[in-house]
Nucleic acid binder design. Sequence first.
DNA 1: CAATGAATAATTTGATCATATTCTGAGCAA
DNA 2: TTGCTCAGAATATGATCAAATTATTCATTG
Lengths: 231, 231
Amino acid sequence: MNRLAEVPPTASDVRGNAKGAPAHQQVYHHLRNLILFGELAPGQPVTIQGLVAQLGAGMTPVREAIRRLTAEGALEFQGNRRVSVPVMTPAHIEELIFARQAIEPQLTIRATQRATQKDLEALAEIDKKLDIAIAKGDVGEYLKENYAFHSKLYSISDSPILSELADGIWLRYGPSLRIVCGRMGTQNLPDQHKETLDAMRAGDCDRAARAIREDVLQGMEQMRYALEHAD
Amino acid sequence: MNRLAEVPPTASDVRGNAKGAPAHQQVYHHLRNLILFGELAPGQPVTIQGLVAQLGAGMTPVREAIRRLTAEGALEFQGNRRVSVPVMTPAHIEELIFARQAIEPQLTIRATQRATQKDLEALAEIDKKLDIAIAKGDVGEYLKENYAFHSKLYSISDSPILSELADGIWLRYGPSLRIVCGRMGTQNLPDQHKETLDAMRAGDCDRAARAIREDVLQGMEQMRYALEHAD
DNA sequence: CAATGAATAATTTGATCATATTCTGAGCAA
DNA sequence: TTGCTCAGAATATGATCAAATTATTCATTG
């Protein structure tokens, strides 16, 4: 008993996977969301047997999910065969800043070229929810909607490889982002989304790219600053 | 019997891992090299049981290795639960070109800043072997040494995240690169390595970055051309 | 006598495998 | 064409083995 499929949806309501999906995918998505939205703290060890107990899944699916996340950089080997959530260092942030500002503007350009009316409306919708989350000071909701905005942008761009890269990068700073936001609240958060949307509506690739680049840089610099003044 | 550890080294001589490493890592590295150096053709299906038989490993390690490579984009799910080596499309190349020319120059800049005399000598050594391989028309050797050169550059840069990204990208076009080189031989291959080395010796970051960018672009454009005139 | 620390026992966790179950797609019958 | 059956392949499980960490013991020393 207590299989994953039988767990009540409230406990393990995992977004982004069908009910009938293979267990290893469900575990993967569950764990991924945990990491992406900061449910797991940096440095926290992730044990196979712990997840087996927590999710009511078998060892093999859990194992595979962990390998996958490890390959994506969302988890890291600790030399001895344990895995844990990576801790962010200034050097890591440096690299992530470069990678994001190199990739995301390009995705935005492509998205601008391909966006339909429907796409723009969907983005606007997400951005509205984001504003509400900020106004309410709801950090968890902010993280989800902010990710949703960028993620939607990726999917519009119709660039699977670059999207995957961007997604992978996002996964790497999820845990730390949560910590930073938790400390600073939702005020002073970057939001160049409206400028981005305006530019996209006008079909102005370069302006949209610049806006996203600005959004990315502001967010990352803020995170860097917060982490440097943490300990 | 017939465990991985007991197989004679000739059969499954897997580079880049210690003897005592866990089986899933050994399988991973083995399969990775197979893909990286074009032993597996694009489109070719990769079955779990096939690898179990071929490598003399158990199912679980093979399974994990496949998940990891899939996460890295070196293999892809085919919807139904088959896995195969991805085929390169013009759209994919487009994305890979952008990603490489965005990331590798930055890695080169960092490598130039950090390179010791020893590092430069190691690079020169690899480049010499590369020249020999080209002269001999040995495609397999060319692929290995060319990868070795860039890989060494990554490691000098001391930028783990960007290096991992670059490595992942490399993994995606390995199979196709093999095909292209097999068809065209080793003539007319790009080699801005000497220019890169010169610039690095002089500590000229920008010149080194430009040289690598040129190297990358030449190689990728050649591949694009070859693939477009393939079918 | 208390404190330290090396040696070892106990426990936790990871790695692997054999096996049972489920799923897919090809071949065949209606 | 549509539906059914079945072989083969993927998925999942729990048992077993191995490694590593933690706890404990006990002799030695200040």
